[in-house]
């Protein structure tokens, strides 16, 4: 058994605050969308706005952290091992095969995660933030009057914001489930709380190979190992 330090303190803080904010934004947002009544419309709007600003502040910190620490490179999508990872989820996981990629502090995302998170960070979150800001500011009070952005109504903004929200819900569902796909059902969760992940030695060996060579043959070998 190896204990590997994966998630920095800020990273964990950021993750959990972001999780709370996204859940809260989701609940208040879908209430504003008219799907249910929970806080009451007026409160939902107020809370949604407060949470939105908190989220934007958090994003500002996170961006700063990503660039000063070079962590943004973690999210550079790569085709390397994508197939192995996909095959793991489709076949290997059922046979209790080892994970094809190993989490380290230098490479904490598997290739599929890289794609999903890059999409999340480069596409969905910016879309949500921008459409959200337009939502807030398409009408804005000036000294003596209320002015309006010339966008002819909320239709487009609202549709984009809603699509983004639905994508985030799906991400959230899948994300919750994928927590359980660590070495043990709880090890991913533990890692995000403590920062350390426990990895059985057998997998360390197999995965280190993958990381080092990263060739197709090795992927084949990984599969061999898994058999």
């Amino acid at each position: 058994m190896t204990r590997e330090y994966i998630y920095h303190r800020f990273e964990r803080f950021w993750h959990w605050v972001q999780a709370a904010l996204i859940i809260f934004l989701g609940v208040t947002g879908f209430e504003i969308h008219g799907l249910f009544t929970f806080f009451g419309y007026e409160q939902a709007v107020q809370y949604h706005e407060i949470a939105a600003w908190s989220f934007i502040i958090l994003i500002a910190f996170a961006i700063f952290w990503h660039f000063t620490k070079g962590e943004w490179r973690q999210y550079l999508p790569t085709w390397k091992n994508v197939r192995a990872q996909a095959e793991y989820y489709v076949f290997g996981i059922f046979r209790n095969a080892p994970h094809p990629t190993k989490k380290t502090v230098l490479s904490k995302l598997n290739p599929l995660q890289k794609f999903v998170y890059a999409g999340l960070k480069a596409l969905i979150i910016p879309t949500m933030v921008i459409t959200g800001l337009v939502y807030m500011f398409y009408r804005y009070p000036q000294r003596y009057e209320v002015l309006s952005l010339n966008i002819g109504g909320l239709q487009t903004v609202a549709v984009l914001h809603t699509i983004g929200a639905f994508l985030l819900v799906s991400f959230f569902v899948a994300h919750l489930y994928l927590i359980t796909t660590g070495h043990k059902v709880t090890s991913n969760l533990k890692a995000m709380i403590t920062g350390y992940e426990e990895i059985p030695d057998s997998e360390v060996m197999a995965a280190v190979e993958t990381v080092r060579t990263g060739s197709k043959e090795t992927v084949g070998e990984t599969k061999e190992v898994s058999r």
Partner: peptide, 20 residues
């Protein structure tokens, strides 16, 4: 016009709930 809480695009709803 589009009013939040009252209006929604039915295709977006179908897509969203389908995806969920």
């Amino acid at each position: 016009f589009y009013m939040p809480g009252r209006d929604y695009n039915p295709w977006v709803e179908r897509f969203g709930f389908g995806l969920m």
